[in-house]
Structure formats: C-alpha cells, structure tokens
Nucleic acid binder design. Structure first.
Lengths: 229, 229, 229, 229
DNA sequence: CATGAATGAGGGTTCATTCAT
DNA sequence: CATGAATGAACCCTCATTCAT
C-alpha cells in the first residue's frame, strides 16, 4: 500500500543533502559556526528554510554530519599509517603526516571550525567538538605508542609527543591557509615532516621523502582546489 | 575650565575596569565568547549594563583589552628568551618554552578563546584575533631565525619550525587543561621541551632542564592556581 | 466518458476517511487542536500527508467533520428525550441527562476540544465551534420550553435553566474525566441527575432512576471503554 | 554604590506591566491564547518586543500572571461567602453566586480562555490552567461541604453539586456574553441563582434576592463595563 | 557617573499546504 | 490515487546597544 521512494528520488535527496553540507562547510569555515545563520546556509544552498529542516533536524545536527565526515577520513589516514610504518617507519610516518596535513588543508572549509572554534563545553556543539578532538588525539597517541613499542621511534613521552605532532601539523596548515598565495604546500609539508621526524628519532632523507609527499598530494587532489582563505 | 580627573577617581575607574576584565575573562573562558552576554559579564562584575558601556565601547572592545594584556606578556617572554639564549641556547629555549606554556596555562581563562575560538575574519572580534595570532607566530619565527643565524639551532625551515613549535606547545597545554587532574604540568612541559629541543638540534640534559622548568613555574605562580577545566 | 466510482472503491475511501477521523479524534483529545499537527495525524493514521489532503481540504475541514458527527448524536439524544418525557417527565429527563453525559464521556476524544478549546471567533475553527455550542444550547433550551409548556417542569427562566443544565452536565463529566480512577460514572451521573431534577421541579426516586442510568450506560458501551484521561 | 530605583520609576514599571496585562487579556479573550502572538500583544500595548520580555519571562509567564489575578479574586469571593452563609444561607449563597458570575463576566477578557481554552495537559500553559480549574472546583466543593455539615443545604453528593454549580454559572455567563445585547445581566444572575438554590434545598424569595444581586453588581462595577463580545 | 528600561533586528525552528512524480 | 519533498510566513525569544533619569 505504501509507495516506495524510487531510486532516482533518493539520489536527488542525497544530492540536496550534499549541497547543504557543502554550503554549510564553506560558510562555517569562512564565518564561523555562530556567525552563520540557517538563513545564510539555505541561501547559499539555494533552498528554502523548510527544506533545510527536512534534511537536518537542527543546526547542531548539521554540524554533527560535517563532523562525522571528517572524522572518518582522519581515522582512515591513521589506520593506513599504522600498517605502512611496520616496514617503513620514516617513510610511512612522513606519508601519514602528509596525508593528515593534506586532509586538513582540503577540508579547510571544515577543519578550522571543527577543530578549533570553541568557547567551552556547554553547548551541544561544543561537547561534540571536544569529544572529536579527544578522539583524534587518541588516534595519534596510539599510533606513536605502537611505533615506540616496535622500537621504531624514541621519544621520552608519547602523550606529549602526540600533542606536539598534532598541534604542529595543525598550526602549519593554518599558517599556510592564511598566506595570500597558497602554492608552496609541498614545501610546507616537507619541512614540517622533517621537523617532527627528527623529534621522533627517525632519520629521513629529504630527497626520498619529497616525491612521496608529492605523490600523496597528487592522489588526494582536493587539497589545493580551494586556495587560501 | 577643563576638569582634571583627580588621581583617586582614576584609581576607582581602573579598579572597576579590572573587575569587568576579570569577570569577562572568567566567563569567556568558561562559556565562550558567543555564549557570554554582556548581562552575564556585568552581573558577575557587580555593575550595571550602563556602567559597562562607560568603561568599554562594545563587547568587541572588551575583547580587545583582554587580548592586549596577554599579548604583552607573551612579547615579554620572547624578548627575554632572545636575550638568554645568546649564552645558553638549550637552557634558554627550554626556559622560554616553559614560560610560554606556563603563560598559556595560567591564562586559561583567556587563552583558549583568545587563540582558538571562532572561525573566520568577518567580525571585528575575529580580525583582531587573527592579527594577534600572526603576531605571536612572527615573534616565534623571528626568535628561531635569530638562533639559526647564530648557528645555535639547525632546522630546514624556520617558518615551518615556528608553526610546529607554537602548535605543539599549544596543544600540549590544551590537552593538559582537559585532563581531570592537572598536577603533572612540569612533566608535560619537560617532555614537550625535549621533543622540540631535539627537532631544533639542541642537545639538552633532562636532569638539567627539569629544575629550571620548576623554577619558572615557581616564579609565575598563577600557572597552577586554577586547576584544570 | 465519465468514470463511475465503483462501490468497493468508495468503501475503501470511506475506510481511509474513518481512519483519519479516528486518529485525529484521539490526538486532538489528548494533545489539543493546536498542539496536534497534520503530520501527527497522518502518522497515526498510517497514511501520507498528500493523502490527507485528498480526503480533507484542510485542518479546519477535518475538524468540521469531527464536529458534525458529535452534533448528530447529540441531536438524536434530545429528539428521543423530547418523545420519552411526554409520558414520563422525570424518568425521561433523567435518561436524557444520562445519555448526554454518556455521550460526552464516550466522546472524550472529541468533546473537550470540541466544546471548550480555544477562545474566540477569528478562525474558521472557532466560528464553527461557537455555532455548534449555540446549537446544542438551543436544543436543550427548546427541550425545557417544551416541558415547561406541558407543565411538566417549573423553572423561573428556561434559558437560564438550559445553561445551568448544560454547564452542570459538562463540568461533571470533565471532573470525572480528570479523576485518576474513572469507574464511578453511574454514581456521578445519578447525583448530577438528582441535582438538576430538583431544580427543574421533578420529583424522582433515586432507586428508580439508578437502574435506568445503568441501562443507558450498558446500551452505549463506548462510554467507558477508554477510561479517564 | 548601587542606585535605588526611585519610586516614580517603579510606578512607571507597574503601569507598563498593567498595560501589557490588559492588552494580553483583551487579545487572549478575543482571539485565544494560541492565536495571539507576542507581536500582537506588544503592538496592542504600544511597546516593543524587547520590552515585553523585560516584564515577562515568556508567554507562559504572562499567562500565569493573568491567571493569578483572577484566582485571588475568586478565592476572596468564596472566603467571604463562607462567612456570610453562616447566618444567612440562602442570601449568602445567592450573593456568592452573584459575585462569582459578576467576576466571570467582568473578566470576560480572561475567563473564557483561563477556564476553558484547552487541548490537553501537555503544555505548561495547559498544566497551569488545569491546576487552577481544580482549585476553583475545590473551593466550591469545600464551601458546599461546609454548608452541608451545618445542615444548611441538602444535596445527595456535594462533589457532583459543586460541578453542576460551577458549570451552571459558567455556561450562564458565557451565554450572556455571546448575546448581542448584554444588558439583562441581573435577570440572568437572578434566575441562575434560583435554579441552583432550589437544587441545594434553599428556599429563597426572588423579591428579596433581586436587590442583593443589584447591590453586588453596583459594588463591582467592572462587570458591565465592557459589554458583550 | 550610575542606572536599567527600552529597543528591534535577527536568531533557530515549526507547520499547514502544494504539486511534480 | 499515493507520495513526500518543498515552501516560507510566522512563531517565540535573545541580546548588544542607547539614553533619559
């Protein structure tokens, strides 16, 4: 008795949802969560207010969806890295760093507000953000613990190292994003890699690492397609 | 014809202003800029809304004042460090890192929202925040350039290193602030120091650095007086 | 050229309509007219929003349909009463009162919001409600006039008496509906009957009336099948 | 240090609050609670939306205030009646009925929506309304119980009688309010009185009661100052 | 100078209704 | 006929800011 939603209608819905997510990502990134109104989002997405609430239960729900997308991508990076570094600690770590930085850069529309925008932990928005920050940090921490156990790196405290690594990557990308011309990303990534590899006690030949970074960036082309802020 | 403000009246004014700044710092830190209303601030400061606007032109102006205070303190740290490292590169850098981390930690009521909150540059608020971030980064960058020129450190790119250093310190402190018990700050600082000293090519004896960190924390007692979030 | 709706299709339509009416009656009664959305109704009825608007022109139209159903039932009660009281004034009136109260009680899903909800006459909804209230009152008024003319009752003003009678019955039922346990309905009806019979100047033996009330309730089984709110 | 609110400012505030209450009472009564928006209220009161929220925390709060006013007045009527009927059962009851009806009539802007507007008990609005309805009914019930104990009235069930009395008065007034010309209020009250006095077993001389009703209406002049709906 | 009443644009969200599929 | 995605006016409420007292 009930009519099924035909496939092409579902496709339409997915498309619309994507449109909203993209519009929101762009606006949140350029104006911040608080300074972006639902009205702004729907205008950018070319839909009506009512439609927005058909696709998302609330502004917080929209945020959650954006969040989940980035989380998954980051998780994938760390999982792959965990594998690669088994046989190639320095190269694998460099690649992981490059991928993480590329991910942050490509998600500029998301990353700044997802990782940094903050007041405190009172709003639902902020509670989620914090939980995710923890999760990211834990992923990196576990990764370093694993390598330390395998005797591949040597740091005096993996927790502190994880923080420094994450923070270092993050600020590097943010700085790059703030620069007027954003074209020397490979250079930035390379030297950030070298800095942290040294701290981790991994010796690496710049000549060998550079092409691998280029390869990563080539594989994930979204990294540069938006230019700097 | 023109009345001079008598000194004791000026003192009164300064006191009131301080009250407002303190109340705002505490509220902004615990609830965030956007979630804190002027009404919240004046209630915490024990004054009226009208009075607030006598001391500050706007909410943004209040923010600016808070900002300026922290900026100056950070500038002092870097200036001192620039001096000390002339004769003692490793120790001086360690001390600078310790002081910077201590400063961030002690200004938890400010630092999180000052450095991280919000997403982009549309509001006056955000423009200032960004300008300050740049300034901090430049201070660190100049500091590293100086040491590199003096042949005291060896990194492949001082700009990237500055980012990694700043970001590393920042995330370390934030992580520490998020932890339930916040008593191992010296431990955190020590290992964050060691991580970055290694990257900078500075050899340092942990045994020698630890007491200097303790000394810094002892000198700047505000660092621990509030405990973790 | 013109298609005739085959009978079994018409039946289907009637069934669907009934489903919607029942769902709406239940929801309106438990949440009120304003707090019940079309979405709520269609979900409870197991149909789509679009379908709803095939069966009813609007929310107001749905309300009208519900209204009409109860009106007819009430009209029947008064018409029957008019007949019975010819030969048995007290017993007939008691029976009418019992039937009216039973009707209100059994239509708890409708009656409260039909007779009471809302405040004034701007919306179509309210205009109808008011018209109906008038109609009910007029029925009772005419009934009393008739008996007064027949010298069966003796009140100083039939209009005032009609109001007191209607209001009395109504509040009695509402009070009963609000009570946690709703099982003493016959008791309630009996004593409400006695109260009004006395005012009307009808002498009645409680022993004789009680079984007639029970009989009415037994005949109209819907009265108790839902229990109190 | 804190300036005190001067008395005349407080007076201004009270006046404003009154303005809002009056505007709201009028609108709620003529359009109902749900159909009256805050915007409507503030426009009628000649103030801004912001001001409204300075005087009332919410729409519900406004409703509560309106409610409280009528509750107190009703309580006073019943308390007085309890006293007067000690020595003059019939006259006192008649007077109480007259005062209650006068109160309802004079508060036509309030009473309909306060006592009747309803859906169910889900919203705060409705919860309060219901609580009050109960309270009114209890007052009347207690009043009847008291008289029954004193052997002044004789009904078979005071609870049922309380409902019939309240409902009767209520519907009588509502009917009067709905009539195009509203000038025969004393007539209405008189005959409603007689109806219920009879049920209660109180013998009363219409000639004696009529002037007392007139007296009540003269004392509470607000009863007729608004005319019918 | 201190006060707090007043403002109103703008916030997120709801929902009766329409219409292309 | 059934469907449910789309609409947008309207809802209640917040809050930075002003200004008469």
């Amino acid at each position: 008795m009930a009519y099924r939603t035909p496939p092409h209608v579902q496709e339409q819905k997915d498309l619309r949802r994507r449109q909203i997510l993209d519009a929101a990502a762009s606006l949140f990134s350029s104006h911040g969560y608080h300074e972006t109104s639902i009205r702004d989002v729907v205008e950018a997405a070319g839909i009506s207010i009512g439609s927005f609430y058909f696709y998302f239960a609330s502004k917080d729900d929209l945020f959650d969806a954006l969040f989940a997308e980035m989380s998954e991508a980051f998780l994938a990076v760390m999982t792959d890295a965990s594998e690669t570094t088994r046989t190639d600690p320095a190269g694998g770590t460099a690649e992981a760093i490059a991928r993480a930085m590329s991910l942050i850069a490509s998600n500029r529309p998301l990353s700044r507000f997802l990782l940094l925008e903050s007041g405190a932990g009172t709003t639902l928005f902020e509670v989620r953000r914090k939980a995710n920050e923890q999760r990211f940090m834990t992923l990196v921490h576990d990764f370093l613990d694993e390598m330390q156990e395998r005797n591949q790196i040597h740091v005096t405290d993996t927790a502190s190292a994880a923080c420094s690594l994450m923070g270092g990557l993050y600020f590097s990308i943010l700085a790059w994003l703030s620069e007027p011309q954003g074209n020397d990303l490979p250079f930035r990534i390379l030297h950030t890699c070298l800095y942290h590899l040294k701290s981790l006690g991994l010796t690496a030949d710049p000549e060998a690492i550079a092409p691998r970074i280029e390869a990563v960036l080539a594989r994930e082309p979204s990294a540069c397609d938006c230019g700097p802020l």
